[in-house]
Each structure stands twice: as C-alpha cells, then as structure tokens.
Write a protein that binds this DNA or RNA. Structure first.
Lengths: 82, 82
DNA sequence: GCCCATTTGTACGTATGTATG
DNA sequence: GCATACATACGTACAAATGGG
C-alpha cells in the first residue's frame, strides 16, 4: 500500500518530499489534481494539519496551486529542482 | 495529595522512579496515556523540563513511548525490571 | 436561487521535543 | 534544575469557495 514516514525530518517535510517525488515521476501529472488533504491524512496516517503543511510547502516550491473548494493541482510547468 | 520528591537522587530520577512504580502497580495501565509533562509539573511541583527528563528516562527504560501532539503512553508490553 | 457535500484555508488549544540562558 | 522560547504535530472547529441536485 502507501508509504511510511519514518525519517528524522519533520513529518510535513517528509510528506512534501514524497509528493514532490510523485510529481517529478509523473504519478501526479501537470495540471492534474493532487489527492485532497483529507485523503493524504488517511494514506499517510497524519493529521490534516500536517498534510496541509505539506501541500503548503509544495505551493511554496512552485509545484502546486490550491483552488479553494476544488482541490490542489500540479502546476502546468513544473520547475526544475533547486 | 500526590507525592513528595525529597530523596537524594536527582529530581528527574526520583520522578521517573515514581512513574515507573505507577506503571508497575497498574496505576498507569499498558497502552494508556501518562499525564502530560505539564500535568506532572503541577502534581510534583517541578519544571516541565524535569518532567520531560523523567518521561525521557521512562522511554529509555522501554516503559513508555511519546507521540508528538498527543501524549506519552505506557507501552503495551511492559518489560521486566532490570 | 437554495441546500448539501467536498475542499481549501485559517485558527486555537494542547502536547512533545529541543535548545538556550 | 529552572524559566523561557521555539518548532513540530495532533485534534477540533469554523469560514469561504465550488459544484451537483
């Protein structure tokens, strides 16, 4: 099934890294919707606050944008890794 | 009321010993939550740092495990005294 | 237009864990 | 040992936006 977050980094960072990996490997394609914060809670067994923080990090990295009431979407042009 | 810490050992050790006694006598049952560090501060009139150190000792003794944002819990299988 | 479920976004209180003086 | 501060995380709650019926 899912994925285990067990590293030393904060959970929200680990989760953001995993989501970034999925974007870069095409699991979440450009323009497509990322699972909702609530869905991520279940998959990764974290609180919604933590998935929220992870999604926020993705936006700060320029990888996703949130649309209130609809979801969080991968940007059309994924920037290179910094 | 509660309990007085007046022995020769460091406070955090005395507090850890008392908590271990409570675990072994079933006051804190396996899987149940131990009062928070802040609660222990009040009961034993020590600083949060000291209750923190005591809880850390409990974890090192394999008697408890901490869950960030939720509390410190007695392990399901309490090991024999060393 | 009006409910209702879903989702993002924000906020508050509590708790652990760590670091500094 | 104590006091304080900060980062992270959980639980809960609520507002606002969206879209289907």
């Amino acid at each position: 099934m899912g994925f285990d977050l067990e590293g030393a980094d904060p959970l929200c960072i680990q989760l953001a890294d995993e989501l970034e990996r999925r974007i870069r490997t095409g699991v979440y394609a450009p323009g497509r919707r990322i699972p909702s914060a609530s869905d991520l809670c279940e998959e990764f067994s974290v609180s919604r606050q933590t998935s929220n923080s992870a999604l926020k990090l993705l936006k700060e990295r320029g990888l996703a944008r949130g649309v209130s009431g609809r979801g969080t979407f991968v940007v059309d042009d994924v920037p290179e890794p910094s």
